[in-house]
């Protein structure tokens, strides 16, 4: 009898899944406006076994430092983070030297400013939001601290269901990578028309991007082939100096910046899951043994 109830529940679940599937098929084609779906990249930190590639994070940091950070802040980044385990893992001496190149405000000093130390946060390029807007044609360059997690990709059915089982969490870097590669010098022929049917008009000072919502982005293409010199001897040996490579590296770096404890979190997760499965097995045996003499 109880067995039959369980069967019913199974049927219900299957029927529910079928209904949801049906609803999803009925979805109107609204995706066109948002542009093409960003392509999934093979991130080293993707999936449950993924970890950051230290060299890639170091290169990504270089791109961030030399290019992005002139407009974008990262106010939650502390210099010390750059030498912490699971990150770019620069040496302490490197981080101290790097920090000393920057100045931070310190009201306890005579001048009100002093060279940064590892405990300090990454200084912002602009003193205020207004100053940042004024310098960027009215657009505010977003802070990078958690930006990689503040962006995502809306997956169609049934992909979003699979994501729960594959633990796909890389929509942010996928989007950033696509955005950096998605610029057009001129509005392409196939640009979506305005809702009134007139051709797409790019506002003054904006740039056309396939992946940016609305396609008109304030940021000029920030990276191009060869715009950053990777140091051959260190992390750049054999790494191409291309837009594709830069955007992968900086996206990976931004993911680390947003989720600095990803590696240790997953490692702990394995220990916890293995423990739970083992413990559940023991509990099941114990429960069965206990109930062995009871008709139920």
């Amino acid at each position: 009898m109880i067995g039959s109830v369980k069967m019913n529940m199974h049927k219900l679940i299957i029927a529910a899944a079928a209904l949801v599937a049906g609803l999803a098929m009925a979805a109107p084609a609204h995706a066109a406006e948002a542009g093409p779906q960003p392509e999934r990249q093979a991130w080293s930190f993707g999936g449950i076994f993924g970890t950051y590639d230290t060299n890639q994070l170091q290169r990504g940091f270089q791109v961030f430092r030399e290019v992005c950070s002139s407009c974008h802040s990262a106010h939650l980044l502390a210099f010390r983070n750059l030498m912490e385990e699971g990150g770019p893992e620069f040496s302490e001496a490197q981080v101290r030297a790097l920090a000393a190149e920057y100045e931070v405000a310190d009201p306890t000093t005579e001048s009100g400013r002093r060279p940064a130390v590892p405990a300090d946060r990454w200084p912002s390029p602009f003193a205020s939001e207004q100053e940042a807007r004024d310098a960027n044609g009215g657009a505010l360059p977003p802070d990078f601290s958690v930006l990689a997690k503040a962006r995502g990709v809306k997956d169609p059915f049934p992909t979003w269901i699979f994501n729960y089982f594959t633990a796909y969490q890389e929509g942010g870097p996928d989007y950033i990578h696509a955005l950096l590669n998605g610029y057009h010098e001129e509005v392409p022929e196939d640009a979506p028309h305005n809702s009134d049917g007139t051709p797409f008009q790019l506002p003054e000072g904006k740039h056309y991007n396939d992946y940016f919502p609305g396609h008109a982005i304030g940021m000029a293409p920030p990276l191009a082939d060869g715009s950053v010199d990777y140091a051959e001897a260190e992390n750049g040996a054999g790494v191409p100096e291309t837009l594709e490579q830069y955007s992968s590296d900086v996206s990976a770096y931004m993911m680390w910046l947003a989720e600095p404890h990803l590696v240790s979190r997953k490692q702990t997760g394995f220990v916890v899951l293995i423990f739970l499965v083992l413990f559940a097995g023991l509990m099941w045996g114990t429960k069965r043994k206990l109930w062995a003499g009871i008709e139920h």
């Binding site: 449950i48 997690k149 994501n163 729960y164 633990a167 796909y168 969490q169 979190r265 997953k266 702990t268 997760g269 394995f270 916890v272 899951l273």
Partner: peptide
């Protein structure tokens, strides 16, 4: 699973 592998999903 969610806490350790997909905390933001």
């Amino acid at each position: 699973w969610f806490v350790f592998f997909a905390p933001d999903i």
